[in-house]
Design a protein around this nucleic acid. Structure first.
Lengths: 227, 227
DNA sequence: GCGCCGCCTGTTGTATACAACACTAGAGCA
DNA sequence: TGCTCTAGTGTTGTATACAACAGGCGGCGC
């Protein structure tokens, strides 16, 4: 009996593993926008040839995270401020829809995970760390999308989040926004969401989430106005 | 001076060409759900080796139109009725958003194209043809999404349309829905939309569109209840 | 007759060598 | 000195051969 059946070295699993790892690196700014990636280096890191790796890169390119240019290189994409604005406007509306379309009854598993996250964020408030903040933020969004049973909506929200969050992180860092303050706001959001979910008010949880997306974006815009 | 600069035999153009052609075949049911595609045959048809073709297949797989299984084949995906329901619910909301987020001022080019489409649909009503209907429907959706200037929203709507329309067409055919009647409804929708756009009421145009998506889906569900 | 096992065929996945391309540095020349 | 052209280097894109895999068919044992 295999305890970790998903770890079988099948082609699909290798693909998913590489995809997840690279996407994470891009979204957490380990590979900042504009960085050139070496197909050869990455391939050797994952212990494969360029061929399977390129498959992953094509996928990431179709997700808008990478761009390959023949004879030049493969680059992590940046996002223009105008496109970012449009994406955020859309994300606000979609965040609201999360509470409208197929709202899931408060799942005890989801509840537990969010509560765990809340504690971790509170702990982070003591010793702020931008990267850890990015990680927890990513995890929170992922879990939060579980409030809808509408899979296509969940996927789209996830996708748009992964496309924009890294730009948001980058701008925050550039504008020297106080990480500690941002962490506190984040912790408050989770607790507010938990209170709403506690009484089964999924719609309100979604609206709280929407509010925080909007406000964090606005704070970022204001702070980076002077750059 | 090159009059058709986009036709340069660059890698990017080849990729886009193959991608568009295959996507079109899938969405117009030339390749019906469940059909197995042969990488070798397709590669030779496009005059390339399997390598560049596989790049296209990976893209189509990430768009949810194909699925490759090692050692078995590459298949056109089908969609379960439950997932279809969820996607339609989402599409209704997004259709409404088309009129809310960055509504474009009625573009004369868009206007002309829609009017041309209206004429073609009217002509089609005389001699109904399921495939031609599918083509015009696809073209209409593509043009209609031009009413918003919000690019991410446009892309998402396009993507969801391409994922569901072929299933809708398949069900319509299976339920033996009267194509002529469906064409007349379609023609009416375009004219209604044109009337709304004529007075610059983009929001109403979007709501009309939403209504027709909803009703055509409901008709399909009712008709295929007896299958 | 029935069931199991192994070969055989066709498919997708992988490795590798090579072509096409973009950029750079430096030589040659005005 | 400044410009241009060319060779060189490193990158992505392509072709091809081969490995890994799934399924079906037929033979073999029972």
């Amino acid at each position: 009996m295999n305890l970790i059946p998903d770890a079988l070295p099948t082609a699909r699993n290798r693909f998913d593993r590489m995809h997840t790892v690279l996407r994470r690196r891009i979204c957490l700014l380990d590979y900042p926008p504009g960085k050139r990636l070496s197909e050869e280096d990455l391939a050797s890191e994952f212990g494969t040839s360029r061929t399977p790796l390129r498959r992953v890169l094509v996928r990431l390119e179709s997700e808008g995270l990478l761009q390959s240019v023949h004879g030049v290189g493969t680059f992590v994409t940046d996002v223009e401020i105008e496109e970012l604005e449009q994406t955020y406007e859309l994300r606000l509306e979609l965040a609201e829809l999360l509470g409208v379309l197929g709202p899931n009854p408060p799942d005890p598993t989801l509840w537990d995970r969010l509560q765990l996250l809340s504690a971790e964020v509170r702990a982070l408030a003591e010793r702020p760390d931008a990267r850890r903040f990015a990680e927890l933020n990513m995890e929170f969004f992922h879990e939060f999308h579980g409030i809808t049973s509408n899979l296509p909506l969940r996927e789209i929200c996830e996708r748009l989040f992964l496309q924009t969050s890294r730009i948001w992180l980058k701008c925050m860092a550039a504008a020297k926004i106080d990480v500690a303050a941002e962490v506190r706001v984040f912790a408050d959001e989770i607790d507010e969401v938990l209170r709403a979910l506690a009484i089964g008010d999924v719609r309100s949880a979604a609206l709280i989430h929407r509010t925080h997306i909007s406000m964090s974006y606005k704070r970022m815009r204001i702070a980076s106005r002077n750059l």
